[in-house]
């Protein structure tokens, strides 16, 4: 398994942000992480990125325990936060230069050139990042994430601020990397993106895991019941209409 989360808990003082979630993301899978605001999505991702320490539980990336072998785990990971903050004084190229040094990427320049061209950043290659628009900053952060060919990629709201071309490029790149064997986790409020792109779904609500299933399992279940329920309808039914967050087996969806 590329990404393993077992009984993950995260508390901030008395506030329970995440209360015991467990899931796995195998290689080649694109997992959609959805849930209302405050469900615990970003906390989960930040803990997996090594920014937050779990209160309890076991997290592993590419077979490396995040608590015991953090450096090896992080070397296999790319995390792009929902609002990427870049080093304002550095250019796009210098960001990639730093990432190459940090992740010890050999012969990184052709790969960097290719990424910059793919994301249409060539013209701004040597501009300081303080001059970039929100969408361009997002693209730079994604380029930095892709440069070291990570085995696990976590993207928090990856389409924010992007133009239609940028959206298409990112969607294609996600599919391509998953096909190449990367495990990908996407957190998003855009349910049509999740429906379109993801092969598995994890719904969180109030820090608890409400549903975890593959998209094929979900579709099969919905079709078997003779319903024509969209992901949006399912999401509302499980998160807003449900009286309390509780795990729902796929067979009961």
């Amino acid at each position: 398994m590329s990404l393993v989360v077992e009984d993950f808990h995260k508390n901030y003082g008395d506030v329970v942000a995440v209360a015991g979630i467990s899931f796995e993301v195998p290689p080649g899978t694109i997992l959609g992480l959805v849930g209302p605001n405050g469900a615990g999505k970003t906390t989960t991702m930040r803990a997996l990125a090594g920014i937050l320490a779990p209160t309890r539980g076991h997290l592993a990336i590419d077979g490396h325990d995040l608590a015991g072998d953090a450096i090896a785990a992080k070397a296999a990971l790319a995390y792009v936060p929902d609002d990427p903050k870049l080093f304002d004084q550095l250019t796009i190229w210098e960001h990639l230069q730093f990432i190459a040094a940090a992740y010890r990427v050999a012969d990184w320049k052709p790969r960097a050139e290719e990424l910059i061209a793919t994301f249409e950043l060539t013209e701004k290659r040597d501009s300081p990042c303080s001059d970039l628009s929100r969408g361009m900053r997002q693209k730079v952060a994604i380029c930095c994430g892709y440069l070291h060919e990570p085995r696990v990629i976590m993207l928090d709201e990856p389409l924010t601020g992007l133009d239609p071309y940028g959206i298409r490029v990112i969607k294609e790149s996600i599919r391509r990397r998953a096909a190449a064997g990367a495990a990908i986790m996407i957190s998003s409020h855009l349910l049509n993106l999740v429906e379109d792109l993801c092969t598995a779904l994890l719904i969180l609500n109030k820090g608890r895991q409400v549903l975890h299933a593959t998209m094929d399992e979900l579709k099969a279940q919905v079709t078997a019941d003779g319903r024509a329920e969209s992901l949006e309808e399912l999401f509302f039914r499980l998160t807003r209409d449900a009286p309390a967050a509780a795990v729902v087996p796929v067979s009961e969806v």
């Binding site: 450096i71 995390y79 903050k85 990432i99 940090a102």
Partner: peptide
């Protein structure tokens, strides 16, 4: 730490 340092360095393979 600045926010870019948190986002880039904390998730990078540094101890």
């Amino acid at each position: 730490f600045t926010l870019p340092e948190v986002q880039f360095l904390f998730s990078a393979p540094f101890s």
